[in-house]
Structures are given as structure tokens and as C-alpha cells.
Design a protein around this nucleic acid. Sequence first.
DNA 1: AAAAGCGGTGCGCAAATTGCACCGGCACTC
DNA 2: GAGTGCCGGTGCAATTTGCGCACCGCTTTT
Lengths: 300, 300
Amino acid sequence: MRHLKDFKFIEGVIRAGSIRKASEDMNITASALNRRINRFEDEFGYEIFERLPRGVRLNPAGELLLHHIRSNRSDFARLKSQVADLSGVRRGHVSVACSQALLPYFLPREISRYRGEHPGVTFSVNARDRVAAERELTEFASDIALVFEPLTMVDFEVVHASAQPIHIIMRADHPLADCEEVRLRDALRFPHIAPSEKFAVRVLLENATRTLTSADVNPLIESESFDFMRHYGQWEDLISFQFPIGLDLEPGAGLVSRPLAERDVAPGSLLLGQLRGRTLPVASARFMRELVVSLSALDN
Amino acid sequence: MRHLKDFKFIEGVIRAGSIRKASEDMNITASALNRRINRFEDEFGYEIFERLPRGVRLNPAGELLLHHIRSNRSDFARLKSQVADLSGVRRGHVSVACSQALLPYFLPREISRYRGEHPGVTFSVNARDRVAAERELTEFASDIALVFEPLTMVDFEVVHASAQPIHIIMRADHPLADCEEVRLRDALRFPHIAPSEKFAVRVLLENATRTLTSADVNPLIESESFDFMRHYGQWEDLISFQFPIGLDLEPGAGLVSRPLAERDVAPGSLLLGQLRGRTLPVASARFMRELVVSLSALDN
DNA sequence: AAAAGCGGTGCGCAAATTGCACCGGCACTC
DNA sequence: GAGTGCCGGTGCAATTTGCGCACCGCTTTT
């Protein structure tokens, strides 16, 4: 696409931090690239880079331009998918930034179902913590985010919220396995494994124990991988914590899950959202609609 | 701006309806222009023009592209005004599509006040009926619309609504001039002048008389210019109808205005709005905010 | 003091773009 | 129904544009 070439080069320079480095990345001479940048600044009417002794850096005007470039690129992608849409086959690309818990069961199921109806649509799915997910939205790197308890909500437009009570996962022969519902203090009496404070599960547990004098979150093992934690329970007899959407509906391998009592621990909010005010590409918008349906069904 | 050149040419072709005509308008040979168009379609991956024996016309894909071009151009203009903004002086351009009634007093006052604070900001102000105003918003030809009772509201995002009871304008010595408030049937008994059905005033009057058997709108003179109608009353003793925002606060020249009783005629809605979901340029957004303040003050 | 990186510039050459002349096709006219 | 006027499209030569190379002046690093 001819008219995006300058933008491409500008992005390259931003990424590389210097014109010379960028020129190597992009198969062009530094002099030619330099002239492109200068010519662009000239036509644009404002400088967009600060010239430093060791390279270049965006100035405030450049930051604004960068945002425009990203937004423009995403608009153009949407245009293309709309055009492809009216020529028959539904094509397009959907990019999702989500919490880990969605990776093993929920999203594979949803995406495969969607792709069953629209085989032309491709996906990129990446695990991101709540801060990174929102940043990806603002940078147009992801269309859709699905995360627990996002922190800074300024650019995050919530499309659907769904309450997720924390479950504990343990062996089927664990003493707590018989309870319908587990009290927090009972759970914490047993040796357990927990994620770091980066994750909503841990934050909710800490919040809950803050008022509790008799118990404390005291994990024998901390990990950033829910997958690891869940599977670890098969080897050593520890309990772990997770949102139910991350669990298989019929857990095999001798593991069972039970909800923590909601009067002990506030349920987490799983929020589905997009960049505030953005018009999503057709494919992403449709997929989002189906996610809303599925998430609503889960709540009942 | 280099990267908008193709778009410029495409718009030219759309406007002219044929490549050859467009080539004359834009100082380029038909062959070169033709090749640009073909190359663009090639890179874009889809044809955007139907080739007809007498020229070319946009196909559906081209319609989508055209919308993208317009939106893109307006985004770029906003970017520039943002950049200009952070370099000190507030610059930019605000375009307003509005009903006639706003032209004589309200908008001049508002705009001059705004330009007093921001002399770098330029304006374009055009009278448009309610249908045309909304179309201009969707085509990014206007940033802001200020109209009475717009019809199709799909793309019109209402920012402020303000009720405007219809007033009648007459000579100071008119028999009705003494009333605080005029009943509709009293007013219609006198010879009057009224706008055509294109205008909200007339529509509201017709709606009101539909249930009234004793009176009818029966103008001796119909006009599309409120300015004409108001001034005509100085020569022949006719009454005319208008929204109060179109009237000077202290009417000179022997004319007075009195409101029609609201129980007879529903007040008109003066709606301030923009294209749904669009992010306005800084200058337009700020001007809009000031309009909201002024309109709110009028309501009290 | 030397070396290494950086952005920027002059110049010759290659590639992309343009203008010109012209083709075939369709519609309207006499 | 032949003639005429536009239309989009194409081959080719002229021209403009953009590129790579060599090199400059500068600052930081070693």
C-alpha cells in the first residue's frame, strides 16, 4: 500500500531509536531514509523527532502522529475487511488480549466455533496482564480485551461484565472436596499455591484476608502460570485458586474444584472490552457479539 | 501531503464522474491519472470504480473507500490542529451547519466571543436544512450541526437539546402585541406569513392545527427566508413565526415578539450535535462546549 | 587522541511517473 | 448506418523522483 510507506518508515525509526539502525532493519540506506523523514517533517510542517547525539526520539508532536498512524492503519484494515465482506466470503483478523485463565478452555472453544462458521477469519490470541491488555487496546495492537479486574479504565470500554467467584482446585480425595462451598479460612488452613500479586485472584484473596485475623495467604509455591499451578496439584497435595472459566467443565485427572464462599471472598469481574469509542473491524465486532452471548450464558 | 495524493485524485475522479474530466481539473494527463487509479485498485486488491461507457462510477467497495478517505482526512486535520495546539497558539478550523434562525444573532455572537479568545481559529458557517445538515456530518463536511427537529437521527449524536417555543413577530401596534402570551387561534385569525413545510416552525404549526377545527395555517406569503419574513412585517402588517433564538434580544424597528401558548403549540427542539462516535478536532470540541454553556443559559 | 555512532549533504545513476500519440468500444446524431 | 464525440486503456520516450555511495561535521565513548 503506497500511501502508508512513509508511516511504515517512521514507525521503523521509532522502533529502532535511530535512523541508521532503522535503515538496516528496513533494507534502505540511512541517507535515503533520512531524506524521507526530513521531507515528511517538511510537508507536515512540524518536526516529529528530537535529534539526539545517539539517535532520534519522538517529540510530543511525534507522539500524536504515532497515535494517528496506528489509528489510521487499523481503520484501513477495517476498511479492507468490510470490502472483503461485501465480496462474499467473510474474512478478516481478530486479535484478542486476554488473561491466562481464558487460554486453556474458554477461548479455544469460542474461537473454534466461530471459525467453524467463518473459516476465512484468522485470530491472534495473547495472554496479557490487565495493564498490558489495556495498553494494547490504546495502541491498536489488539481489538478485544478479556481480563479480570482491569486497573486503569480510562480507555477501556466495558462491553460485558461477568462475575467470577474464585474456585479452589484440589485432589478428589482432599478433605475439602466434599463441601459444596468452601470457607476461605478452611481453605487457607491447607497448604496452598497461589499466583503473584500481579493477578486478580491473588489481589482478591489478599483483600479478603485483610479483615481476617485468623488466616493468611501463605503460598508454598508462587507462580505466574495458572496452568502450572493447576497441574502441580496432581503431584503434591496442594490446593490452588482459579476462576471457574479457566477450568474444564468436567475436570479429569482426579482434580475437583469447589467455589469459595462469596461472603468470604468477593467474586472477580471478568470484563470484556475494547478501546473506548473505536469502531471495530467487522470480524472482531461479530466475534465480540458472540463472546457476549457465551459469557451471558455462563452467568445463568 | 504526499500520502494523501492518491486519495485526492480518487476524490477528483468521483467528483468529475470520469477520468478524463478529472484529469483536466487536476493538471494531469488522463493517461497518468488512469494509471494511478488502476495501480491503486491493484494494490488495494479490489476495483473501486465501475467502468461505464460514459465514465466511471463508484461501486460499493468504492463507497466504503470514499468514507474512509473522508474520515481519514478529517482525522489528519484534527492531528494537525492538535500539534499546532501544543506549539502554543490555538489554531484550527470549525465548520458549522445550522438552521437559518441561528445566523443573524446567536452564532455571530458566539463565534465572535470565541474568536476573541482564540483569534487563530477560523470558521465556516452554512445554513442547511435538517436533512442536509446530518448528511454533512456523515460526510465530514461539517463538524457541528445546530438544527431544529432533525429527521433521521441515526448518525446524529445529540450533545445538547434546548426547547424553543415558537414566537410570533408583529408590529408594536398590533392588537396582539399587548398579550403576554398568544393563543394559536388568535394568531391565525390575523393575516400571516409562514415558512414552507421544509421548516420545523411550519411543521409544528401544522401539527398544532391538525386538531384544531377553528383555525388553519393559511399564509398570505410563503418564504424560505426567515430574514425576509421578519422584515416584511415592517412593511405590511402581517405576523410571522419564528424561534426566539433567531430574534434579537431587544428588537428595534417597531417589531415585537410574543410567545405562542405552549398548550397550543409544542415547542421546537433545537438540537446541537455531531457525527455519532466521532472525535472532533480540538477547536471544534471546545467551541461546542461553549455552545452548550450558552444554550443552557438560554433555557433559564 | 582515537574510534565509533549519529544526522545530514552532494552527486551520479536507476527506477518510477508522466505526457503524448493512439487504439478499440460505446452512445448519440444526422 | 456511417459519422462523431467521449470514454478507458496502452506503448513509448521524456522527465522527474528516489536511491546508494562517499563523505562531512559533530558528539560521545574508549
